[in-house]
Write a protein that binds this DNA or RNA. Structure first.
Length: 348
DNA sequence: CAGCCGTGGTA
DNA sequence: TTACCAAGGCT
C-alpha cells in the first residue's frame, strides 16, 4: 500500500474518526444527521482560540437561552455581552450579535450554505467559513486551523516558517482533503491534533497517520510547525477605582473598540509603563489601597492597583450603580471580576 | 502584513 | 515559575 498517497491519508483518518471521535454537544456522531447550522456556527465562534473545556458551559448557556439564530438576533446587546463575560476576545460577542442580525434580516433567518456566502458575515473568517460550510452543509472545503497546521506540517515535514508559508501549507491540506466527508475530515484533524498530534510529546505510537508521517519517520515531529519568533510582552500598570455609595458600586461600560471593548468594568486610569496616579480618578475622594491584581493578556501584562472609597453623596458620574452583593452577576470580564474581589476583600 | 484582542490549561 | 498555546478575525 502506498501509505503516503493523499487519498490514503483521508481514508485512514476517517476510519480512525469513526471509532474515536470525541462526543461534543455541538457535534453529530459520524454517520448521523448533521448538526443545525446555528449550533455549528455558535460553537465555531466560541472555539476560536478557545479550548473545548472553556466553551462547554457557555455553549450550553447560550443554546438554552437563545435556541435559534432569531432569538439571538432579538436579544439585548448587554445581555449577550454579559453572558459572554469570562470567555475572552469580546469582539467575538459583538460580531456574534451583528452576525445573528444579518442572518435574520438579510438571509431570512437561514445561514448561507456556501463558503463564500458565510465569509461575508461578521466574525466569520477563512477558517470559520470553511468549517461551517463543511460541517453544517456537507460542502467540500479546505479547513485550516492550528491543529490542521500542526498535523499537516508534520505529515509532510513541512519546515517553512509560518505564517509566511501559509499559502503553500494550504496547498498541502488541499491535497489530502477528501471530496466526501470534508467536515468529518476537518473534525478528525482537530481531534487528532488535540489528543494525539499534540504540540509537545505527540503520541505517534497510537497515531492513525504514523506510517505516512514524514516527521515521525525523521524522529522530530515536535519541531513542527516552524514558527517565527515571538516578541516579548511589555509590562503595564494601571489603577482601578472602586467607588461605593449606599451599598452600590459604580460600573462603567468600556468603549466598543480596544481592550475589553463593550464590557462592563470598573473605572480605570490609563494603562501604561508610567506609575498610576490617583489624579486619574473620576471623582475626588479619600482613597484607600485594596491591593493589586496581575493579569496577563495576549500582548501585554498588567499590574492593576485597586483603590476604594465610600462616598456619602452620590457623585454626578455616568455609569451604573450596581448592588455590591450581586456584582458577580454584572458580567465583568475576568480582570475586573478579580479586581472587584480584591476590593471587597480589602475594604473589610 | 503585523499588531491588536482574553483566558485558562499544561509541562 | 515561566512560557507556550488554543476550532482566528479584524484592521
Amino acid at each position: 500500500m502506498f501509505v503516503d498517497a493523499p487519498a490514503q491519508v483521508a481514508a485512514k483518518l476517517l476510519d480512525w474518526y469513526d471509532v474515536h471521535a470525541r462526543a461534543l454537544p455541538w457535534r453529530a456522531p459520524p454517520g448521523t444527521a448533521r448538526t443545525e447550522p446555528y449550533r455549528v456556527w455558535l460553537s465555531e465562534i466560541m472555539l476560536q482560540q478557545t479550548t473545548v473545556a472553556a466553551v462547554r458551559g457557555y455553549f450550553a448557556k447560550f443554546t438554552e437561552r437563545w435556541p435559534t439564530v432569531d432569538t439571538l438576533a432579538n436579544a439585548d446587546d448587554a445581555d449577550v455581552m454579559a453572558a459572554w463575560a469570562g470567555l475572552g476576545y469580546y469582539a467575538r460577542a459583538r460580531n456574534l450579535i451583528a452576525c445573528a442580525r444579518a442572518v435574520a434580516r438579510d438571509h431570512g433567518g437561514s445561514f448561507p450554505d456556501s463558503e463564500a456566502g458565510l465569509r461575508t458575515l461578521p466574525g466569520i473568517g477563512d477558517y470559520s467559513a470553511a468549517a461551517i460550510a463543511a460541517i453544517a452543509f456537507g460542502r467540500r472545503a479546505v479547513v485550516i486551523d492550528a491543529n490542521v497546521e500542526r498535523v499537516t506540517s508534520r505529515l509532510f515535514a513541512f519546515a517553512d516558517p509560518l505564517p509566511a508559508a501559509r499559502p503553500r501549507l494550504r496547498a498541502l491540506v488541499d491535497t489530502i482533503t477528501p471530496n466526501d466527508r470534508a467536515g468529518d475530515f476537518a473534525q478528525a484533524m482537530m481531534d487528532l491534533g488535540s489528543g494525539i498530534c499534540t504540540p509537545r510529546n505527540p503520541q505517534c505510537l497510537i497515531c492513525p497517520l504514523r506510517d505516512p508521517c514524514k516527521a515521525r519517520v525523521a524522529g522530530n515531529p515536535e519541531t513542527y510547525p516552524v514558527k517565527a519568533a515571538k516578541k516579548p510582552k511589555p509590562q503595564r500598570k494601571g489603577t482601578a477605582f472602586w467607588i461605593e455609595h449606599e451599598g452600590d458600586v459604580l460600573l462603567v461600560r468600556r468603549p466598543d473598540k480596544g481592550m475589553l471593548g463593550g464590557m462592563r468594568a470598573l473605572p480605570t486610569g490609563p494603562w501604561s509603563d508610567e506609575d498610576p496616579a490617583l489624579t486619574d480618578a473620576p471623582v475626588d475622594a479619600d482613597w484607600r489601597e485594596a491591593g493589586s491584581v496581575t493579569h496577563v493578556f495576549t500582548h501585554f501584562a498588567l499590574d492593576l492597583r485597586v483603590v476604594v472609597t465610600k462616598l456619602s453623596a452620590r457623585p454626578d458620574i455616568s455609569g451604573e450603580w450596581w448592588p455590591i452583593p450581586s456584582v458577580d452577576t454584572a458580567g465583568l470580564p475576568t480582570l475586573f471580576a478579580r479586581a472587584a474581589a480584591r476590593a471587597i476583600a480589602g475594604s473589610k
